[in-house]
């Protein structure tokens, strides 16, 4: 385990938080989409995060030899939110059912905004880790001067 592992770990955090932000953007963009790829209303997507070991050669070898390793994060899957769709009364809508209700995506803009803030703060925290580790590493190099 070295300082480079801290940088790898922070990088895994950056890509995970960025993925959350991308998925939030997709959800918001499709908040009114009544026809998805399968012809059904769009369903909200959620990112499932999982603890993971950075998969570079060095850390894998060290982990195998010493039994300890750093833990990064990875996107386990992008799942679909199981909440039912919202029914909106709009008889003029081309996708309205015979009773005049349109099945709208289960996207709540407020929830998405909260997720967006959370992803953004998480991203910033990982950037700070990366900066601090970098600073520590350059301090170590001073010993050699």
């Amino acid at each position: 385990m070295s300082l480079f592992d801290a940088i790898d770990t922070a990088a895994s955090g950056l890509s995970a938080e960025r993925m959350r932000m991308d998925v939030t953007a997709e959800n918001l963009a499709n908040a009114q989409t009544t026809r998805g790829a399968d012809g059904q209303p769009y369903r909200r997507k959620v990112v499932v995060l999982q603890e993971a070991v950075p998969s570079n050669f060095g850390s894998t070898l060290r982990g195998a030899m010493k039994g300890t390793n750093t833990t990064g994060v990875r996107v386990a899957e992008i799942a679909q939110d199981a909440t039912p769709n919202r029914l909106v009364y709009d008889p003029g809508h081309p996708d309205a059912d015979p009773r005049g209700y349109v099945s709208m995506p289960n996207v709540q803009p407020v929830t998405e905004m909260v997720d967006l803030i959370s992803a953004s703060r998480g991203y910033e925290a990982n950037v700070t880790v990366m900066q601090t580790s970098k600073q520590m590493f350059s301090k170590t190099l001073e010993i050699l001067r």
Binding site: D5, G13, L49, T71, A125, N126, T132, S133
Partner: peptide, 16 residues
């Protein structure tokens, strides 16, 4: 140094 890497793991897993 090891502690720094461990804390980095904690922060990257803040939403896990």
């Amino acid at each position: 140094g090891m502690r720094q890497a461990t804390i980095a793991g904690n922060i990257s897993n803040a939403n896990t």
